[in-house]
Design a protein around this nucleic acid. Structure first.
Lengths: 136, 136
DNA sequence: CTGCATCCGAGAGGATACTG
DNA sequence: CAGTATCCTCTCGGATGCAG
């Protein structure tokens, strides 16, 4: 029995957007498109790590969400341009803020992970968790 | 053979943060903690849909990333408080902006998906994609 | 109360091959 | 060039049971 996702959506209306942000490629693609419309292959080269499957899929999702437009030129060879919609552009402002934070603080996050890892590794048998003494 | 994630991290330093944002529960937990420190069970009740397993796991991740602190009071029964760190609080500003955008525009996204779905369903055999005429 | 361990199904995402 | 289809792997995340 599946818990209906519709009900979950009512509780968390932001899921629609956050899921898209979190899916590894959307942010990269949106950032690239922010600088102007791009063809499929150009996007692929701009994001070398993405597989063509995920690029196509993610672009369809973004299109479905109304964040990008897809324009097909019925030429030979075919040509398809992707560009941000108004909605997509309006998303870039808060998104850039988040990315800026990430760029500014990712090193701090890395350091924290390093410390955390060493804390765990340090003298802990197997299932023990690090314990911080109560301050009160 | 696993492609080393380290190399990918170098290309996308924001992955650290974005992955955390995208993992379904972090944002909810951080939002809850923004209003003050919370005990494990209180968090669970505040986010009814989360399973015990994911709450503990997500909290450990957030702790590892240096975004929240974990304070154990060695009492019986045990009591554990979670709270935002400075780093965590500094993340909330851009995060709130993004959530605000999501709340303001999620309906637009929903509508877009609706239109997209009907476009696809409309008279398309099976593998055909919607085609937009070139404007030029 | 706070959480870890285990089992399990569903989905993300990569590699490859094929099409118009 | 711009995809789609298939296969396969790995992680996410829920359910349940156990422990300090």
């Amino acid at each position: 029995m599946k818990i209906d996702k519709e009900a979950l959506q009512q509780l968390c209306p932001t899921r629609d957007v956050l899921d898209r942000i979190g899916d590894r490629w959307s942010v990269l693609i949106l950032s690239e498109l922010e600088e102007g419309s791009r063809r499929f292959t150009v996007l692929r080269r701009a994001i070398p790590d993405i597989s063509q499957r995920m690029l196509a899929q993610t672009l369809r999702h973004l299109e479905a969400d109304g964040l990008v437009t897809r324009t097909v030129y019925p030429t030979i060879p075919p040509r398809v341009d992707y560009a941000l919609t108004e909605l997509g552009r309006s998303l870039m402002a808060p998104l850039r803020a988040l990315v800026a934070w990430a760029e500014a603080n990712h090193q701090a996050v890395r350091d924290a992970r390093q410390r955390y890892a060493s804390t765990v590794t340090d003298g802990s048998p197997s299932t023990a968790r690090p314990i911080m003494a109560a301050s009160a």
